[in-house]
Amino acid sequence: MENTLTLHHVSASYDGKAVLEDISLEIPAHGITAIIGPSGCGKSTLLRCMNGMLREEKGTGISGEILLGGQDIQKMEPEQLRRRVGLVFQTPAPFPFSIYRNMTYALRYYGVRDKKELDRQVREKLEMAGLYEEVSQELDKSAHKLSGGQQQRLCIARALTVEPEVLLLDEPCSALDVKSSSVIERMLVQLKERYTIVIVTHNIAQARRISDHVAFLFGGRLVEFGTTAQIFSEPREEQTRDFLEGIYG
């Protein structure tokens, strides 16, 4: 299988305190990889390594190698890297503009000016996020007036406007109810045909429902990586089994 993102012995630290230790991982293309693990084990940090955001923060140290399609991300321009690896945050943060401007913001920045093209992109990406039908009549409405679930889907659609190859999601459903979560889950399953998706989730059932591969992180180490079926039916490691049985909460 083709690999988009490959991590070789990645370690990361905040102010000298190690947070990730020696993580080697191959993220398969066109699939959903779920990262699970107890709170504080470094899941968000791992995501921010993958799109180069950690590198720019002060007081952080990173070692090891991350390859995107065979290319070392250290050597790429940050802007270029972020266009190829999108990141959606835990709390939805639509910009304080209209829905339409939220969707066109990055496109305009990258030089798309043609109104028809913008409209087409907005529609296509909103449809992908399953939001188009709900908001097509009110694209001029402030994005802040959407519900939490709609805002999160808008943020996902917005991240898709720059056409990333990989989409990283950091607990996108943690603030949402069951219904909004299931809408997003269905959307992600559809999106994986076009994008490679990495999702951090606290919801084990969710990981089981939507992911193809699961990585279990514990105390900054990658304990186990495997297909979803394997991890859930026959975990190799003791710690994985304990975690799935709810011992660490």
């Binding site: 304080p96 913001y105 917005r158």
Partner: peptide, 25 residues
């Protein structure tokens, strides 16, 4: 703090984001 990370995650430069998001908001 609310908006800049989201903008940077799309590869948008900090100064562009400051001028178009932070100041107007």
């Amino acid at each position: 703090e609310a908006y800049l990370p989201a903008a940077e995650a799309m590869g948008i430069s900090k100064w562009y984001a400051i001028a178009t998001i932070v100041l107007p908001a």
